[in-house]
């Protein structure tokens, strides 16, 4: 049978109805984060296979069970990889159910980490993750090493106090800044503000997180049954990836800011508190720094910028971040935050 491969655009209602029906039939839901979707149609214009991309990841694959064994997934994956390559994305990742791992391994993907019975995370480079860890190993220092992972969206006094406390207690602090572009404050800005903000601490080494630390904003949810399972799956995958990174850097402690407000991060921290000690890493959760009786949080800072209350943030931002938001460079960032409808994580 001859099949036609074509894009399913977001405004194509008929295509999307077929897409939803196909996904539902195969037991998955449409992921909220997709930037391109394609479908394979048979001669009667029935959708028989689909796949999508988001950033550097391939996701949301489904093949109609009546058409399994015809190599349709290969066609869809080939098309998506070619498209990603055209967009300049060469290092590609796949999230999938554990039992589909072998299909992707046949297509030149290599497993990086897996959460038993939940999901598997693959990349298209052999030894991509291990060479990432090897590179990190150059920054390994003797003595007690601590780690902090932050999005710093944007860098606040709360972040700074967490780093200062860690820098005080450890010989070396490895500070990872999430490099995924899913935040209102773009990565180059976040990176610059973190580096300037911790410049006075000589034992802090900053690292871009690279593709191996995943923000909850881009973690795929389509094949997990409910929100709880999504958060748990995300936390466990993150920890599975953090293990080898911690080993490469000789990390003994991970510092985390307390999370009274965000449901996702709260549950995430709870899982970390359980799992990290199993990997021999101490888990330290520090209470939030307060300003004016309120805990400082990056989302509250974004809300203030959104509402045009930049001047009220004096006691919540370090000098460097404050100066940045008062410079002309900050205008595009401020505009982006202002025009965004949702600035707080649920």
């Amino acid at each position: 049978m001859a099949y036609t491969l074509s894009e399913i655009r977001p405004d194509d209602k008929r295509g999307h109805t077929k897409l939803r029906a196909l996904l539902e039939g195969e037991g998955i839901t449409l992921d909220g984060n997709l930037d391109y979707t394609c479908g394979l149609f048979d001669e009667d214009y029935q959708l028989v296979a689909t796949g999508s991309t988001f950033g550097c990841t391939l996701r949301c694959f489904a093949v109609d069970h009546r058409h399994r064994g015809e190599g349709l997934l290969n066609q869809v994956v080939s098309h998506l990889m070619e498209r990603q390559t055209e967009r300049g994305i060469f290092h590609q990742f796949v999230y999938t159910k554990c039992r589909s791992t072998k299909f992707f391994q046949d297509l030149g993907f290599y497993e990086i980490a897996r959460v038993e019975d939940t999901l598997s995370f693959l990349e298209n480079r052999r030894g991509g993750f291990s060479s990432f860890c090897q590179k990190l190993e150059r920054d390994r220092r003797p003595g007690k090493s601590g780690a902090i992972v932050m999005n710093a969206n944007p860098f606040t006094l709360g972040h700074l106090s967490l780093v200062e406390r860690a820098a005080d207690e450890c010989d070396t602090v490895h500070l990872f800044v999430l490099s995924e572009e899913q935040s209102l404050v773009p990565f180059p800005v976040r990176w610059k503000l973190v580096q300037e903000g911790v410049a006075h601490l000589s034992n802090v080494i900053c690292h871009p997180s690279g593709p191996y630390m995943i923000s909850s904003a881009t973690f795929p949810s389509y094949f997990l049954k409910d929100e709880q399972a999504v958060i748990t799956g995300h936390a466990k995958l993150d920890l599975a990836l953090f293990g080898p990174i911690a080993q490469a850097l000789g990390i003994q402690v991970r510092y985390v800011g307390e999370e009274p407000r965000s449901l996702v991060t709260g549950l995430y921290n709870q899982i970390m508190a359980q799992e990290l000690p199993k990997a021999g890493i101490q888990y330290v959760e520090l209470p939030r720094l307060q300003a004016g009786g309120q805990p400082i949080s990056a989302s509250a800072v974004r809300q203030a910028i959104h509402d045009g209350r930049l001047e009220t943030l004096r006691d919540q931002l370090p000098q460097t971040t404050w100066d940045f938001f008062h410079s002309s460079q900050a205008q595009p960032v401020i505009d982006a935050i202002r025009s965004s409808a949702e600035v707080i994580h649920y």
Binding site: G71, Q75, V77, S78, H79, M81, F90
Partner: peptide
């Protein structure tokens, strides 16, 4: 970087 080919049967994907 550049890529050619597909992952379909009897083909090869070269990067």
């Amino acid at each position: 970087p550049a890529m050619a080919g597909t992952l379909e049967s009897s083909d090869a994907q070269v990067t």
